[in-house]
Design a protein around this nucleic acid. Sequence first.
DNA 1: AAGTGGTCTAGACCACTAC
DNA 2: TAGTGGTCTAGACCACTTG
Lengths: 265, 265
Amino acid sequence: MAPTRSEYSCGVTGAQPRLPRYREIAEELRAAIEGGEFTEGASLPSENDLSERYGVSRGTIRQTFAFLRAAGVVSSRQGARRQVLLGGPHTQPMTELVSFSRWARSVGEVPSSRTISTGIVVPSPFVAERLGLAEGDSAFHIERVRLLSGVATMVESTYYPQRLAAPLLAMDLDAESITDRLEEYGIVFVDAEHSIEAIAASDRVAILLDIDTGTPLLRSIRRTTDPVGEVLECSFDSYVGSAVAFFVRNSVAVGAVSRVKTTPR
Amino acid sequence: MAPTRSEYSCGVTGAQPRLPRYREIAEELRAAIEGGEFTEGASLPSENDLSERYGVSRGTIRQTFAFLRAAGVVSSRQGARRQVLLGGPHTQPMTELVSFSRWARSVGEVPSSRTISTGIVVPSPFVAERLGLAEGDSAFHIERVRLLSGVATMVESTYYPQRLAAPLLAMDLDAESITDRLEEYGIVFVDAEHSIEAIAASDRVAILLDIDTGTPLLRSIRRTTDPVGEVLECSFDSYVGSAVAFFVRNSVAVGAVSRVKTTPR
DNA sequence: AAGTGGTCTAGACCACTAC
DNA sequence: TAGTGGTCTAGACCACTTG
C-alpha cells in the first residue's frame, strides 16, 4: 500500500529542508533522554510501541534507532529492549568537530582567533598528497591561534585548494567562522578523517600557545571532503594537551575508530 | 510474499554462527575494494544492480551499504552512485580496539607484555564511578607494560569488577590475551567509550617505557561494557606518543566522535 | 528524462530474552 | 511462551544528480 502521509513532500514554510520522519522521532527520543525521562541504562519502549505511538511503520522506527545507535545514544541486543547509553558529551559531531567556532559556542565558550600568516605556499608532499595536488602545485595556507574565552588553546595550520583562496581572502579571518562563511558559498563539509596523536610542542608553537617547549600537545590531522569527494582542507590542529580531549563511543556494530601504528615522518 | 530463501535458518556446520546475507555481501564488496577492483573515489554499482546480481531485495543491499558506511568504507549522496572512501586502515575496530594483542597481530607485530602488579585495590572515585561501584568498594587491578615486537609501547592500568578476579587470576597474564581468554568464558565486549588525550609521562611511567619524564604520551581512558550494559573494565592506556595514533573517519550522517573540553582532575 | 539513493509501508519469519 | 529485536521481501513515491 502507498504511504498514507498526505503531507509526505516537503513543507513550503521556506525555513529548513525539514527532517525526515525518522529523524524527527530520533530528536524527540533524544530530547526525552536528555530531559531525564529515560536515565542511563533504562529500557526504551519497544519498536511496536513506538510505531503505534507515532503512527509509523516499524521500519521507520528501526531507522530511528539505527540513527541513535550510530550516534552512540542507545545500545541494542536481540531479544531485549534497547537501553540508554548515558548522556555523555552531547552529539552533533560532524559540524562541531570540523568547526572550532561552533564547537566552542556549543560548550559555552567564546571562540576567537589570531591569524599568524596567510598565503600561497607549495605544501610538503604529505599535504600535497592529501589535498590531491601534483608535486609542486601550490595551496592556500592559513595559520591561526585559536582561543577559548581568551585563552590560547590551539594552533591551527590549514591548507586549502587554490579554488578556495578567493572566498577565504575576502573574509575577516579573526572575526568569522570560516566553516560558516564557506557554507554560505554552498561549500559543505560532509566527510572527515582524523588522525589523533600526541606530540611535543616545538619552540614556535610553544611561543604561540604561551607554554613551554616540549609540553604535550594533542594533534589532530584532519582531511575534509565535500559531497562529491573533493578535498576541502587538510589541517594540522595542535591543542594544549591539558585543555582538550577527543571522545569516541563505539560498539561491535559500528566502528569508525581504529588504532594505527605511526611511521615516523 | 514470504522470503524465498529456503536455507534462511542457520546452517548446521557447527562452525561459526554464519553471517546474515547483508554482511556476506558487505564482506564481498569490502574484499573487492581492498583487492583493488574499486579504487579510491570510484563509483560502486547501483543498488538495483547489486540486488539483481546477488538475488536479494533492495532492502538487503541497503543494509549492506549502511554497514559499510558506518565502517567508513563508502560514502553516499542522494542521486549519485556511492563512492569508495580510500582503503585507509582496514577496519575491524571494536575487538581490535579493545585488545592490544589482537591489534598488534593485525598490524604484523608480535605482542607481549610484562605484568607490573596485580591485586585488589580500592579505586579512586573517578574509576569507582566508571565501574559502577559504591565508594569504598574494591576492584581488581592489573598494571602491565605492553610491547610491540619487543619494544615497550604502552603502559596499561586496568580495573575490573571483582567478579572477574577469579578468571583473571587463573590466567598467565604475560602469555595470553585477556580479551581472548575472557571470551572463552562467555564474556564479550560490545560497547566502549574512549577518551583520548595528551599527557606528559610521569617519572614512574617514564621508567617503565624507557623514555624521558615529560615525554608526550597519548592516553586513552576506556570503559567497556558487555551486552547487558554491565561494566567490564576501566582502563588507562598510555602510549608512547611517537608510536601510535588513533584514526577516525566520520561523516555528517555517522558521528561517534566528539571533542571535549577537559576539566582538570 | 532516466537513473540513483533516501524515505516509508506492510508483512513475514527467525533468534534470542525474559518471565 | 510471549515479546523483542534482527533479517528479509516487495513495492511505492520522493529528491536529487547526471547526461
